[in-house]
């Protein structure tokens, strides 16, 4: 059973790696939120950070590593106006080597059967981050963004 990383004594920038497995992701997220730099954010910004990181990491688990849980790393750095994040994995590339648009359907007065059950993730990520950049190189996916601290 893969174990989440030990974050005792965490004080400044955070750089950790762990297997992209749903249970480990959930446990690691809860630990990351409790230590700097995310613990220094407002309650609202921390809630946004939890949601964005959960969406990004679960996408890695589901789409980059569909067969087995591979390694993912997170680098978090406090800046004046928030926290800069970089998330790196060595799994499959994004389709077309670019980020999904995450567009919602134009109209939501759809027939019951046509209501979307997915595709919300990238919309949420795009809504709650700034400076979102995706680079595919050297067989790595490298996603970076800033979580604004405007709470």
């Amino acid at each position: 059973m893969p174990q989440p990383p030990d974050l005792e004594g965490q004080t400044t920038d955070l750089h950790i790696a762990f297997p992209a497995n749903p249970a480990v992701i959930r446990d690691t997220l809860l630990r990351i939120l409790a230590v700097p730099p995310l613990s220094g954010l407002s309650a609202e910004a921390r809630g946004n950070a939890e949601l964005v990181l959960a969406e990004v990491l679960n996408n890695v688990a589901e789409h980059a590593y569909p067969e087995r849980a591979g390694p993912v790393s997170i680098l978090l750095r406090r800046v004046d106006d928030g926290v800069c994040c970089q998330i790196v994995d060595r799994g499959l590339a994004m389709p077309g080597n670019r980020l999904p648009e995450g567009e919602l359907p134009d109209r939501l007065n759809l027939a019951l059967d046509d209501l979307p059950e997915g595709g919300f993730g990238w919309h949420l990520i795009r809504s709650l981050t700034c400076d979102l950049i995706y680079v595919r190189s050297h067989e790595e996916n490298r996603l970076s963004f800033r979580l604004p601290d405007d709470g």
Partner: peptide, 30 residues
């Protein structure tokens, strides 16, 4: 805490109930 998977599951439940039953929500945290 609710993520996009959780939201998708709630929408799926609404669809499961079909056109003759209503799914309503209460007590949403911020």
């Amino acid at each position: 805490f609710l993520d996009s998977s959780g939201l998708g599951a709630i929408v799926a439940v609404k669809k499961l109930l079909g056109p003759d039953r209503m799914l309503e929500l209460s007590g949403l945290t911020p």
